[in-house]
Design a binder for these strands. Structure first.
Lengths: 257, 257
DNA sequence: CGCGGTATTGAATCAAGTCAAACTTCGTGG
DNA sequence: CCACGAAGTTTGACTTGATTCAATACCGCG
């Protein structure tokens, strides 16, 4: 395929080609529409990241913005005590490296959970790109807005929410994100370990495992290792909404509602 | 004093005057240095908010950026179930209304916990202001960066952290913010209720109350209603750092390490 | 085939939540 | 000025959800 073409680490200044490729990628739907529209794209260069390797690490000087083209990564804060805190699982369309804009060093580790690819915009080229593409800056604002929103959502999860609720939301969230990228929203496989999910949700890995089992026993999902299938999405949704942890809450499928 | 002058809701276009006033206010240290430097300030108009009233509410169209000049507010998400989730307690120098940049409606409620004042920049004037003051946009980026950072910090608190740890951090954080604004870092009074602290920290108001009492018994602080005095800051710090909740952890000051 | 990392499951413990009651502070109006 | 009521705070007893510790099972890989 054109994979090796894409991977080629050279800048391509021919807008027409880029537009075509963007269309193939379906990139016009991502968080950064203006990137896919070509003109600004001239400055973006693709970069592959193999599973397990880092895009950047906390403390490094931040030199560029990144947009995930495909794959799944993990951004985390290296805890003061050795333990890491998982902040997010960036996927296609997500922006990384916003620290660069603020001129601050990287605050987080970002590691690939599977072989992935990002588009790179060196921060030095950023202002130029902005002046060339009027929409870019606005996209950026919008991105920040949704990033803040996302984190707030996450805060909400961690704050006043039962463990089962958090996990249910997590699954539905993943499902939605996969759907948005053209994958099946019903069956997918997790790229991350139980421990990483636990850290993300503020739970222990044992709790996560137990909850998966429980959800399965209750017929909400089918799970084997990292393969997940959502069986009763309505029930999952009500599990995600209801604060109440009693089995009965989601044991009865949608009838009354 | 010049309070009534400041409160006057007219635009002032004379930079020199504004610079002088900014210097009086000490605003040069806030998150938005370029605002205080004058040129951009021409567009900012002060606005008073009385205790208990809202600066804006979730769902409203967002029309302006705000920077807190003095006072203490509360930003919260109105929970789907009637309960609110407290996100932050904005104080002097903090930026509000960033949703406006993204062109989205307000996502949060913002209410004054005490009589406060903010500087207002209508979003319509934003681009103009940016072109007039080169530093403004950068300040904005920096703000977003630190906002994200702040939320991450908060996430960390809510995630893998014991209740005592969270409260200790909260107190130290407040102390630091007061210090940064020229108030005493050792003694201050809380502008928010136990319930609001609890929501912010992901705890119940009873837990917060209990922890205050415990900290007091252990000689870390003195607390009466909303008056707080930090007695043993070093011990507080170690309580904030150590994951371990045993009383002994912070009963014995730093010795073995 | 056996080994290492990952996941599941169980039992015991504990931190925080829940429910409930008493008490303090403060504002309001008699 | 004092009585009253509302709101906020403290404290206690009890319950429970989630962690911890530990053992076992499983998958993938060399």
């Amino acid at each position: 395929m054109n994979v090796q073409t894409i991977a080629t680490p050279i800048r391509h200044d021919v807008s027409a080609l880029h537009v075509q490729r963007a269309a193939q990628d379906g990139c016009q739907q991502i968080a950064f529409p203006s990137i896919a529209l070509g003109d600004a794209g001239a400055q973006w260069t693709p970069r592959r990241i193999r599973r397990g390797t880092y895009l950047y690490r906390a403390g490094m000087p931040s030199t560029a913005l990144f947009v995930v083209r495909f794959g799944c990564l993990k951004s985390s804060l290296p805890g003061d005590d050795g333990e890491e805190l998982v902040l997010d699982f960036p996927m296609r369309g997500d922006l990384l490296g916003a620290d660069a804009l603020a001129g601050q060093p990287c605050a987080t580790d970002v590691q690939a959970l599977e072989d992935s690819e990002v588009l790179v915009l060196p921060i030095a080229d950023f202002e130029t790109a902005c002046s060339r593409v009027p929409g870019l800056r606005n996209d950026l604002y919008r991105h920040f807005g949704s990033a803040l929103r996302r984190e707030r959502e996450h805060l909400m999860r961690l704050g006043g929410m039962r463990a089962a609720q958090r996990l249910a939301r997590f699954l539905l969230d993943l499902s939605q994100r996969f759907a948005a990228n053209g994958y099946s929203p019903r069956a997918f496989n997790l790229r991350m370990s139980r421990a990483e999910i636990g850290s993300y949700l503020g739970l222990t890995l044992e709790s996560v495992s137990r909850l998966f089992s429980r959800f399965q026993d209750d017929g909400l999902i089918k799970v084997h290792l990292r393969e997940i299938e959502l069986i009763d999405i309505a029930a999952l949704r009500s599990a995600a909404a209801a604060g109440d942890g009693s089995a009965a809450a989601w044991a009865a499928p949608a009838e009354a509602a």
